[in-house]
């Protein structure tokens, strides 16, 4: 009996011998995977854990994710507690020393960025305020400025784990930066300066800050909590005062309240892609920003 158990163990050890060259990068969110592919190039195999249409705030751990994390050379994640509901469990259950906190394979992308304080700025944070983000607004992936920092941080992280290919990662980074500066020129003509919008969640703050438009109100009163009638009324009045004609939302958040406000005020309910792959044709991070700006400029909403 004991011997048979031992034999099985040996068999599994043999079967589980690591396969081949290249780094396994596990990214929590699709946009992280997209940037990692740009910087890692052929040297990395990227596995994204969260589905593009999923609400990144409410993800649950699945055993398949644990298995992916077990193989990871690097685990790249958004940080600022956006993944607090599942990542700690994944990291511990992965039984993978390479991605434990403080190891070079533990890549919290928020370490590289300039964070808008948002909820954190008020100085008070407790759950009576809903599912707030007490460490600052975590949706920095819609900020080209921050993505440039993230790309550089990823190149450094990949080089730290795989120093032999440092030149390759730096070359990929340079190519990414060239493409980004081209795109920035193209995007600078978006003409969104001074625009006024209402949004569902504090999701587009970075974009607004960098493209000079304003989010004057939010349909959700407290994150994760259905808004009160009084709050909806307030938002609609604000919209009238400011002449807001667009309500910004995401695929997973087209709620009853948004439709109600849209009907009452005549403002258009605009569904924007929140991440890479969440709508047809949004295939990488550049495509994501392209599409959002296009829609905000006055094009029609995305597909789906």
């Amino acid at each position: 009996m004991k011997r048979r158990v031992l034999l099985w163990m040996i068999l599994f050890l043999l079967l589980s011998a690591p396969a081949s060259a290249g780094l396994n990068v596990v990214a929590t969110l699709p946009w992280i995977g997209s940037i990692a592919r740009e910087i890692g190039g052929d040297r990395v195999r990227v596995r994204v854990l969260v589905r593009p249409t999923q609400d990144a705030h409410y993800v649950e751990a699945r055993p398949s994710m644990i298995l992916a994390a077990r193989r990871a050379d690097l685990l790249m994640y958004n940080g600022l507690d956006l993944e607090a509901g599942y990542l700690p469990v994944l990291v511990e259950s992965s039984r993978n020393p390479r991605i434990q906190p403080g190891m070079p394979g533990d890549v919290d992308c928020s370490r590289f960025v300039e964070v808008l304080q948002g909820d954190a700025a008020t100085g008070r944070a407790d759950r009576s305020m809903g599912d707030i983000h007490p460490l600052g607004n975590p949706h920095y992936h819609l900020s080209p400025k921050n993505i440039a920092r993230v790309a550089r941080g990823m190149a450094d992280s990949l080089s730290a784990v795989d120093p032999g290919n440092r030149d390759l990662y730096m070359a990929n980074l340079a190519a990414f930066e060239r493409k980004l500066s081209q795109k920035l020129k193209q995007w600078s003509g978006a003409g969104l300066e001074g625009g006024r919008f209402v949004a569902y969640h504090r999701f587009f703050e970075y974009l607004a800050a960098e493209f000079g438009f304003h989010i004057v109100g939010y349909i959700e009163e407290k994150p994760g909590i259905p808004p009160s009638a009084a709050h909806i009324q307030e938002v609609m009045e604000r919209m009238k005062e400011d002449g807001v004609t667009k309500i910004l939302t995401t695929v997973y958040q087209v709620g009853r309240e948004g439709r109600y406000v849209s009907e009452r005020t005549g403002a258009e309910l605009v569904v924007l892609p929140h991440d890479v792959g969440s709508m047809k044709g949004v295939d990488d991070w550049f495509g994501l920003i392209d599409r959002i700006l296009e829609v905000l400029k006055g094009g029609t909403g995305g597909g789906r």
Binding site: M103, S110, R111, F112, V113, E114, L135, G136, D156
Partner: peptide
């Protein structure tokens, strides 16, 4: 040595960090 490597890359990363509250 591993800790040192981790710290080294940590120091590099810190250069980017602007958010004072990050990490809790």
């Amino acid at each position: 040595r591993t800790r040192a490597v981790a710290l080294e890359s940590g120091a590099q990363m810190k250069a980017y960090r602007v958010n004072p509250k990050g990490g809790g």
